[in-house]
Design a protein around this nucleic acid. Structure first.
Lengths: 217, 217
DNA sequence: ACCTGAACACCGTTCAAGT
DNA sequence: ACCTGAACACCGTTCAAGT
């Protein structure tokens, strides 16, 4: 458990009619349900009841359930981006001593760790739960931001001569695929089923990737 | 569309009481619904109605809906294994001229192609739809078989001196992560959203992997 | 052995109505 | 502006009953 114990969103006072900040509370409570019972535990009835509010109150703040989950995705990509930037900038708590390889590994491991520590949240982000035709612009923006953290890291590694001069976007998509693949197989229990250790798989993968994208010579 | 037009499973004759091979028909019809309407289109009512059978008839053949989907997964892993073996053994229709690199690439591309051509089926296989505690042994067997195809290929590449002498299982997990990652991002529309071409991403990834796992010297 | 039909406890969503 | 409560059209699953 690495999730900070976020304060439980307030219930509506029984007498009062307005909740106050229902939109934010709905989002927070949905995240809480996802983390504890998984996505299938997210019913409008359950979330509403936990906030002392009718099961239809949410329609004032979100178009529908899919829009609520889209907001959950946005929040996830934001958290993921911050985790990646943190690992990249401060790989072991000793940024000044960090080699390019160490920073790269730290970022990759941080990605996988985010997924493993928030499996249900991660699955909402990539499990096809939000209808693609909704196309929440905030979601696209946050997803793009998380990806950009990866691109920026690649570019910096290229500048320092550690990584070959391929198109940075292609390199970033490749690396994203690797960590996303490890994360998904881990979440799905596929690695566990084989008796494999997720951390080992992640470390091995990142090291092989580093070799695969290293500058030649 | 690359799926062979499988013959539509027979409806029950209105007069008759028994369907004949309902279990097989249920599986086939479920696959058909998944392919055309996605997993969320799979309702026991819809599948039953399409076969001219009650919505509860399936409980004679499967424990519940999750068990039906587990069977769908098994079938998917079986098809995937065959596709991988086919690509590995006959990369371009000219097996005798195929280099190790070409066979490796063909296998990787075949993996991604399977997912892209059967996105909903692939998502059922890896989307956490089947409850893990059911633990269908046939499913575990088929999943293991598909993975084994990858391991066997790695071992052969190691014997031929093309791939470094790391633990074959670790190498196979790494490669699985890469192709699974590309496949999932493709299915999810993440690559499309960036304007990336799935085939290009897959080819680039496989080539970088090949470099990353190549024998040294 | 195999299938049916009614019943049950759930869903998301809508909409007129209340404050 | 914000929330409620009844109603609607869906679900998966159970179970006694039919053939």
């Amino acid at each position: 458990m690495a999730t900070a114990a976020s304060p439980r969103p307030r219930r509506k006072r029984p007498g009062r009619y307005h909740h106050g900040d229902l939109r934010h509370a709905l989002l927070q409570e949905t995240l809480r349900v996802i983390q504890t019972q998984g996505v299938e535990g997210v019913t409008l009835r359950a979330v509403g009841e936990r906030l002392g509010v009718s099961r239809t109150a949410l329609y004032r703040h979100f178009a529908d359930k899919s829009a609520l989950l889209a907001a959950v995705c946005s929040e996830g990509f934001r958290t993921l981006r911050l985790a990646l930037l943190d690992a990249w900038g401060d790989p072991e708590g000793r940024p000044e001593r960090a080699s390019a390889a160490a920073r790269f590994e730290a970022m990759g491991l941080a990605y996988v760790r985010f997924a493993v520590e928030h499996p249900s949240h991660y699955r909402v982000m990539f499990g096809g739960f939000v209808k693609r035709d909704v196309a929440d612009p905030a979601l696209a923006h946050e997803a793009g931001g998380a990806f950009q953290a990866l691109v920026d890291a690649i570019v910096e590694l290229q500048r320092s001569g550690a990584v070959r001069g391929d198109d940075a976007l292609q390199l970033a998509r490749f690396i994203w695929s690797v960590v996303h693949g490890v994360a998904m197989l881990a979440i799905d229990g596929q690695l566990e089923r084989q008796g494999a250790n997720v951390g080992e798989v992640a470390r091995f993968a990142i090291e092989r990737v580093r070799t695969g994208i290293a500058a030649e010579g």
